[in-house]
């Protein structure tokens, strides 16, 4: 059984002279919630459009559920649900009728699935109200309902929390987590709200100017964002011994370049520097480091100079 739900191999998309996506290799394993982070125009939606078959790659390939096809894996798409950009809905139909169109389209027997899905996204009481009169949040929830109607194994969500109020965001997050936990649904989600993604995703892909610049797990990201003292001394081995013996801590790392990353004593820098200098060490650099998710992302993609 193939462990990967999605693998892209040097996926490239060009629009005349513009390269929207350049040699992107993404791998998503079954059961993961993969958060795609990137600025506006970074190539997130382009990538999702290629995966869902709305657009065609200029180069590379997409492997969905182990099936590689140059353009679109039709059979694999039947196992997917997706919201790309804004939810695509019939404005003059009710929520029920919108779902009925998709039920007929997918050939799902019986109408029970419609009630079940409407209940899942809390739209049971909308009755005959037309979608054009829905709030943005309700439309997002209905879009999700359409994506969920056929019990997909792989869910692709492009900015699903757009337009949702804080409660709606929490509900959406809990729903996605529940689907992932209880039904094992693999999720690929893109969002600008990094803190939101941080609470949801198990893996991250950071995309910038059409290129995937980093892929990491939540643990790795947390590690990178963790507050620490960055210490550079003339003798790193000795420095590590001092931290261990004098400050009684093991919560530090010695990096390849000899830099020490100390994760405690953040509020007591003086004690740390005194301990090191008392043992004849010269402190070459001492600073407090560690990023919020936003600042880590911002540093990675070039920060303010791109704003």
């Amino acid at each position: 059984m193939n462990d990967y739900v999605l693998r892209t191999n040097h996926l490239t998309k060009k629009y005349k002279k513009d390269i929207a996506l350049n040699n992107v290799n993404v791998s998503i394993k079954r059961g993961e919630i993969y958060g795609l982070i990137g600025r506006n125009g970074a190539g997130k939606s382009t990538m999702l459009r290629l995966i869902t078959g709305l657009a065609f790659p200029s180069g590379g390939s997409i492997e969905l559920f182990g099936k590689i096809q140059p353009n679109v894996a039709i059979d694999a798409q039947k196992r997917m649900g997706a919201i790309i950009e804004q939810p695509a809905l019939f404005p003059n139909m009710s929520a029920y009728e919108n779902l009925e169109v998709h039920r007929l389209q997918k050939g799902i027997p019986g109408r029970e699935c419609i009630d079940k899905t409407l209940e899942l996204v809390s739209l049971m009481d909308t009755g005959k109200k037309k979608v054009k009169n829905f709030s943005l949040g309700m439309k997002q929830r209905l879009g999700l309902a359409i994506a969920l109607l056929s019990d997909p194994e792989f869910l692709i969500l492009d900015e699903p929390t757009n337009g949702l109020d804080p409660m709606g965001i929490v509900e959406m997050r809990e729903l996605i987590k529940r689907l992932n936990r209880e039904k094992g649904v693999t999720v690929l989600i893109s969002s600008h709200i990094l803190s939101e993604l941080h609470q949801l995703a198990t893996n991250f892909g950071i995309i910038h100017q059409g290129q995937l610049i980093e892929e990491l797990t939540t643990t790795e990201l947390d590690e990178k964002c963790r507050q620490h003292l960055r210490i550079k001394v003339d003798n790193p081995t000795m420095g590590a011994t001092v931290l261990e013996q004098q400050l009684s801590t093991t919560d530090f790392e010695v990096m390849q370049d000899g830099t020490l990353k100390l994760y405690n004593y953040l509020d007591d820098v003086r004690t740390v520097s005194r301990a090191l200098t008392n043992h004849g060490l010269t402190i070459l650099h001492l600073s407090q480091n560690g990023d919020s998710l936003e600042s880590y992302f911002s540093k990675l993609v070039g920060g303010e100079e791109n704003d």
Partner: peptide, 15 residues
């Protein structure tokens, strides 16, 4: 154009 519902149809896995 307006509703963009064609997207759902293409994603639904039909030729």
């Amino acid at each position: 154009s307006n509703s963009g519902v064609i997207r759902n149809q293409i994603i639904s896995g039909h030729k």
